[in-house]
């Protein structure tokens, strides 16, 4: 092969590769846009319907804020919301504490790290309904726990903990334990080492764990169904209302729109917090 033909061959190959890269970029853009649409279109649609005069028709038209006013006159949702917030705060606190306790130690284990991590994360893949039934059978029937706010906190915690742990591990697995040795070397007691060095460097992980706990608890339904007893959470309330096909269904559109906006805002905030820490 002469130098000229080889040159020609290389240039043809380079053009072909450039075309392929172009196609790959387009496919990525289409997929990204498509997935985003699939996820967010229904949320936006719900928002649009919540300001339509006849949302049950399924099509928007003659816009009104009437349903939002309705939320303030018909306040049956208020009590379930308060219950849900109480539970969410409790679950969030539990998640922060337990994710910190487990997450700061897990990356430092010399042995058994992988199986332990798997054990902690397994509830992620167990269907919610199964967890709900399991908890009901075990805690109510076997341990005779009274179903209500405590059982709800329990199942929500079981559900949220793996996410909280992952959020903490993103931060704690990058924590350089040699910094603790340096602090000890400079005279810091175990408590000061935790408070001055670990705590500030793990804060974003703790916050993320709390956010996951709060949000996942606030919107949890399948597990709650089995263990709620006579307690009604906001998801249980909206679910019951939606199923009943009553005249108040339209209020649900407003309520869910508000929940969606608040949840998204909190999620964006926690991801941003996490990203900021990871960068530095």
């Amino acid at each position: 092969m002469t130098a000229a033909t080889f040159d020609n061959f290389a240039h043809r190959a380079a053009r072909r590769e450039a075309r392929l890269i172009g196609i790959a970029i387009w496919l990525t853009l289409i997929a990204g846009f498509g997935i985003t649409t699939l996820i967010y279109a229904p949320v936006v649609w719900l928002g649009v319907l919540s300001i339509s005069s006849d949302p049950l028709a399924g099509l928007p038209g003659s816009f009104t804020l009437g349903w939002y006013y309705g939320l303030f006159t018909d306040t049956r949702w208020l009590h379930p919301l308060i219950v849900s917030l109480e539970i969410a705060v409790a679950v969030s606190t539990l998640c922060m504490i337990s994710a910190t306790l487990v997450g700061r130690v897990l990356p430092r284990l010399k042995r058994g790290r992988a199986p332990l991590l798997a054990a902690f994360l397994l509830p992620l893949v167990v269907p919610g309904i199964v967890v709900g039934i399991d908890v009901f059978i075990y805690y109510k029937m076997f341990l005779t726990l009274k179903m209500g706010i405590w059982s709800l906190i329990l199942v929500h915690f079981i559900w949220a903990f793996p996410f909280a742990l992952i959020g903490m591990l993103v931060v704690s697995s990058r924590f350089d334990v040699r910094l603790l040795e340096a602090a000890a070397d400079l005279g810091a007691s175990p408590w000061r080492r935790f408070w001055d060095i670990e705590r500030p460097l793990l804060t974003s992980g703790v916050v993320t764990a709390g956010m996951f706990g709060f949000l996942l608890s606030l919107t949890e339904l399948p597990r709650s169904i089995f263990v709620a007893g006579h307690t009604q959470t906001l998801p249980l309330f909206t679910w019951a209302e939606t199923m009943s096909r009553g005249s108040h269904v339209s209020l649900i559109y407003c309520l869910n729109t508000i929940i969606a906006i608040v949840s998204i805002a909190l999620s964006v905030l926690s991801v941003w917090l996490l990203g900021r820490r990871v960068k530095s």
């Binding site: 040699r178 040795e181 340096a182 070397d185 400079l186 005279g187 007691s189 500030p200 530095s280």
Partner: peptide
């Protein structure tokens, strides 16, 4: 280590990343 009157300069320095130079030295 925290009760011994020795101090170490580590190979990897182990400076506290969330503190300024001054805060590190003062720790």
């Amino acid at each position: 280590a925290n009760h011994r009157e020795v101090a170490t300069v580590f190979q990897h320095y182990a400076l506290f990343p969330h503190m300024t130079v001054g805060q590190n030295v003062e720790y």
